[in-house]
C-alpha cells in the first residue's frame, strides 16, 4: 500500500489521541465534509469509520513517545480517503494480520453474517468494545487496505487506508 500525499489533503492530525481530542475532530470533519459537498449518508459512513478506527487507537495502540497516531482525510478523483496509523506491539501485529487477512477475504454476505452473530452473541472486550470496529470499516468502505510495518524492536506501524467512492453516492 502506498500512502500518497499527492491528493488534496483535507485534514491531518498527528499527535496523541484520546476522548478529549476525538469529539472536536469528529465535529470538524463533519462540517468539512459537508462543505466539500459530501452527502449525509456518505458523510455518516466516513465519520462512523473514523470513530471506530480512532477508538481502536485509543483502546489498543501501543504507547510510544515518538510513534504518535496519525489521521488524515484526503480528496481524490474517485472519492474520500481516510488513513489512520498507529504503533502496535509485535504480539498485536500477529493477531491483526491473521484477523484482517481472514476478514478481507470474506464476501459481503459473510461479513454481514459475522457482524450479526457478533452483535447478538459476541462478548465485550475489557475496554467495553464489541469487537466489531474493524469488521464495520471493512464492510462500509468501498476499498480497505492495511499495512503492518516493523519499525524497531517490539513495535510496528499499523496503517489503515479506507477509500469511499463519491460516485456511488451521487
Amino acid at each position: 500500500m502506498t500512502v500518497s500525499y499527492e491528493h488534496r489533503l483535507l485534514f491531518r492530525h498527528e499527535g496523541p489521541l484520546d476522548m478529549e481530542v476525538l469529539p472536536p475532530i469528529v465535529q470538524h470533519l463533519d462540517k468539512l465534509l459537508a462543505q466539500e459537498g459530501v452527502r449525509p449518508p456518505l458523510r455518516r459512513k466516513i465519520i462512523s469509520c473514523l470513530i471506530e478506527l480512532a477508538q481502536n487507537i485509543i483502546h489498543y495502540a501501543a504507547r510510544h513517545d515518538q510513534m504518535v497516531p496519525l489521521i488524515t482525510l484526503s480528496r481524490t478523483d474517485e472519492g474520500i480517503v481516510l488513513i489512520t496509523r498507529n504503533a502496535v506491539y509485535y504480539s498485536q501485529e500477529l493477531f491483526l494480520h491473521s484477523y484482517l487477512q481472514n476478514l478481507t477475504q470474506m464476501s459481503r454476505e459473510e461479513l454481514e453474517a459475522l457482524h450479526h452473530q457478533t452483535l447478538v452473541s459476541g462478548s465485550y472486550s475489557d475496554s467495553g468494545g464489541a469487537n466489531l470496529g474493524l469488521l464495520q470499516v471493512i464492510y462500509k468502505a468501498d476499498r480497505f487496505e492495511y499495512e503492518l510495518t516493523p519499525v524497531e524492536g517490539e513495535y510496528s506501524w499499523f496503517t489503515v487506508k479506507a477509500t469511499f467512492l463519491t460516485k456511488s453516492h451521487e
Partner: peptide, 8 residues
C-alpha cells in the same frame, strides 16, 4: 453517530 459497542 453511534459506535459498534453502542450497537451491541
Amino acid at each position: 453517530y453511534f459506535n459498534t459497542s453502542t450497537a451491541k
